[in-house]
């Protein structure tokens, strides 16, 4: 089973397009990972906050029941710099490091234990709930066999990841 995690940024939506893309590298990584998950056919599920679900449905359409494959639209903190949406919080980098490591190693247990109250303070509460639920849902039912991190950066003070997981089916 293939699982892809992409950010929930609204800048991925066509209705917010610019003449000059403010996130060209992220968008390219998102589209490459989305194409990879769709190589196996339609995805069986999407997950995200309301914004994340809109992004996910834009990328892969409506999920088809009873097939594997999952696209999760969720990211990290929004307080990495002074100009970040939530301004700077010194705890943001550490939070993102913990979540980023869990994603990069396919550590489902660690994901399920994300510090959601801290995430809420770092403007990442909804996405933290999504990622924690992903960890809980998969832990004990599958294992992550292979991981590819396509993107890991915070260009606007908001942490984005694009991660591909190849899981046991």
């Amino acid at each position: 089973m293939r699982i892809v995690v992409v950010p929930s940024t609204l800048a991925l939506l066509p209705r917010y397009a610019s003449a000059s893309d403010p996130i060209p590298e992220l968008r390219a990584a998102v589209h490459a990972a989305t194409a990879w998950v769709l190589e196996d056919g339609p995805v069986g599920g999407v997950a995200g906050s309301p914004a994340g679900l809109e992004v996910a449905r834009h990328l892969v359409g409506d999920p088809v029941e009873a097939v594997p494959g999952l696209l999760v639209a969720a990211g990290g903190s929004a307080m990495r710099t002074e100009n970040a949406p939530g301004a700077f919080d010194e705890r943001a980098e550490g939070y993102d490091a913990v979540v980023g490591k869990a994603l990069a190693t396919g550590d489902l247990e660690a994901l399920s234990r994300i510090d959601v109250p801290l995430a809420e303070e770092l403007w990442a509460g909804e996405d933290a709930l999504v990622l924690a639920a992903l960890g809980r849902r998969l832990a004990g039912t599958t294992r992550v066999l292979d991981v590819q991190v396509d993107y890991d950066d915070a260009p606007y003070g908001v942490q984005y990841w694009v991660v591909r997981w190849q899981c046991e089916s």
């Binding site: 609204l10 800048a11 917010y16 397009a17 610019s18 003449a19 893309d21 929004a78 606007y156």
Partner: peptide
């Protein structure tokens, strides 16, 4: 009739 040149405010 024209896209903003580069909009990220409130979207990131």
């Amino acid at each position: 009739r024209r896209l903003p040149q580069r909009a990220i405010r409130g979207l990131a």
